[in-house]
Design a protein around this nucleic acid. Structure first.
Length: 549
RNA sequence: GGUCCGUUGGUGAAGUGGUUUAACACAUAGCCCUCUCAAGGCUACAUACACGGGUCCGAAUCCCGUACGGAUCACCA
């Protein structure tokens, strides 16, 4: 029996060859310099900030070059698959408008692109053809090692401080004759297919990573599993080889944790004589935990999960800007000079990514977000708030829609001007800052009057002001002059400089008067411009609130 | 233990042998402005190049070693 016979025994129904598939997946017809990237998640968990980082990088690289960004569902691990994971991943990339050019969704049967299927479990025959080829050539073999045998190999390797893995003399079945292998298979023995590695651990090769630069690795000599016995699907390494070759990926963007499997991938591509794509290994996103710095964790850090940003209501723009700022530190300067350009117009450079992990800084995110939101029109903020609250605060959503115009006016306070207020970093913060403008929410609070202020004085100031001085029709200057007038009449000081110089000569200052009025109508001692607040509140609300005191 | 990577102030970082008394941004603090807050203006801040050798007229920048940190070593991706 030859290797070819063995291959036929294992894959009797596979008739297409590697060459057939190469014809089916021809070179992409793209302009010079166009790059093909992919986001290739496994549906085994929810998307976290590290995945998102890579995805943004994928997207920028592809879009900036007028290339292709596609989505590939890497569902080769049936056991760990989580229901709804791929739907959630889809939700996130669509939420951030990182639409893939090619994709396939099982649940809705949507598919787009000529290089599919884009779901690995549907590509089994393709992988088998490639594996069959390898077996015929004697470059892969069935391995009958049991779990127990492997455990004991590992144990002895650990004990003897040897490298761990199935290689050299530990690769017990690599030199089994096709006849012996066939016999075991016919008996129904369990097996995986392993690569018959030709690498030499004592030889080194150079590898260029676009982010990390040139690295040197020993060649791979481990007979890695390329096909699992459990579901006959390939392992990641093999699927990466086949898919990225056939789909003509030019740039593989993936987390730094993959660097250590570069020797395996290098050998796999070499074995087939395929050209390797370029690699961009993205730095880990780290987190400071007390004194220790560690990889950000979905379990321990709420901000690691992408749901966090949606729940908080960070605009998608803010999150992407924050990620881009971490990815390339010259991005901020670029953005300053190009405030209106799409982030994909930025000439992203993998080389500029920091090789050490980056701490994702929520303060920085807030700052970026505050600046962004402050520059929006009130109506735009309203729309965003509407959309967010629909999902996360239904009651508030009803309220703002009931008073749509009023709410927009509130959101417009000190907004459309050269130096707008920067009050909100996220949509979820808004309610906490404007609740007192709504009678429906004007309950369960305490008036924040200055300490030691007696009730009689409060009443006197409020009554005097609203009965004798306040007129809705006044413009701001008139309004403020009247405030000063009353201040002086009641024995307070209308000039802050004068008051600060001689505090003992007066009952208080115009600041105290303002405070009484401000707290009287809003309960809060800190609000935006009092004139605007009074204008917006209007006579009815004001009267109702005064009478509550 | 093997392999690979990294180490500039509280954070992200600029910097690739000499315009560096080491940018910039965020954070923090103070002052100014001011009816409060936010914003804005100004200033300060951290006495920042892990450590030790070497190369050189000259090193954060090049080389070696040490320490520390991280990633990875599955029929998981």
């Amino acid at each position: 029996m030859t290797n070819k016979d063995l291959a036929n025994l294992i894959f009797p129904n596979i008739t297409k060859t590697v060459e057939d598939y190469e014809k089916e997946y021809p070179e992409r017809d793209l302009p010079e310099g166009a790059r093909v990237t992919r986001y290739a998640p496994s549906p085994t968990g929810f998307m976290h900030i590290g995945n998102f980082y890579s995805t943004v990088v994928d997207y920028v690289i592809a879009k900036h070059s007028n290339g292709v960004f596609y989505l590939r569902n890497e569902d080769t691990d049936g056991a760990r698959e989580i229901e709804g994971a791929i739907e959630y991943i889809r939700h996130v990339i669509e939420h951030y408008k990182l639409y893939p050019d090619e994709y396939e969704y099982k649940d809705t049967k949507e598919i787009k692109g000529n290089y599919g299927p884009y779901i690995q479990s549907e590509r089994k025959d393709i992988y088998h053809a490639f594996i069959k080829h390898l077996i015929s050539e004697g470059k892969a073999y069935p391995c009958f090692l049991t779990q127990e045998e492997m455990d004991s190999i590992r144990e002895s390797q650990t004990k003897d401080k040897r490298r761990i893995g199935i290689y050299g003399r530990y690769a017990k079945y690599r030199n089994l004759s096709p006849d012996e292998a066939a016999e075991r298979i016919k008996k129904g023995e369990n097996y995986v297919i392993r690569l018959k590695s030709q690498g030499d651990f004592n030889k080194k090769f150079k590898f260029d990573d676009l982010a990390f630069g040139t690295m040197e690795f020993p060649e791979n000599d481990i007979d890695v599993v390329i096909m699992k016995s459990s579901n006959l699907l390939p392992t990641y390494h093999f699927a990466h080889l086949v898919d990225d070759h056939l789909m003509h990926t030019t740039h593989v963007v993936r987390g730094q944790e993959w660097i250590s499997s570069v020797p395996t991938h290098y050998e796999l591509f070499k074995t087939f004589g395929f050209k390797m794509p370029k690699y961009v290994h993205t730095p880990l996103i780290l987190k400071k935990d007390g004194e220790k710095i560690r990889k950000i964790s979905k379990r321990l850090d709420p901000e690691a999960r992408m749901t966090y940003y949606e729940e908080k209501g960070y605009p998608i723009y803010s999150v992407i800007e924050a990620i881009m700022t971490i990815a390339n530190s010259n991005y901020e300067a670029w953005r300053e000079n190009n405030p209106d350009k799409d982030f994909t117009e930025f000439d992203f450079s993998p080389k500029k990514m920091s090789a050490s992990g980056a701490l994702f800084d929520l303060d920085k995110l807030d700052n970026i977000s505050k600046n962004y939101i402050s520059k929006l029109k009130a109506s735009e903020v309203f729309d965003m708030l509407d959309e967010w609250s629909k999902e996360y605060d239904k009651d508030f959503n009803d309220l703002i829609n009931k008073y749509k115009e009023y709410t927009t006016d509130i959101l417009n306070i000190e907004r459309e001007q050269k130096k707008p207020r920067k009050d909100y970093a996220s949509l979820s913060e808004i309610k906490g800052q404007i609740w007192y403008m709504y009678d429906e929410l004007y309950e369960n609070f305490e008036h924040e009057f200055a300490e030691g202020l007696d009730k009689e004085e409060i009443t006197r100031v409020l009554n005097t002001y609203f009965n004798e001085y306040y007129d809705e029709k006044d413009d701001k200057d008139t309004w403020f002059n009247k405030m000063k007038e009353m201040t002086d009449k009641l024995g307070y000081c209308s000039g802050m400089k004068e008051y600060k110089a001689n505090p003992d000569k007066y009952k208080g200052s115009i600041a105290d008067i303002s405070n009484i009025i401000r707290v009287g109508v809003t309960s809060k001692s800190q609000t935006p411009d009092l004139y605007v607040i009074l204008q917006l509140l209007g006579k009815d609300r004001i009267n109702k609130r005064i009478s509550m005191i």
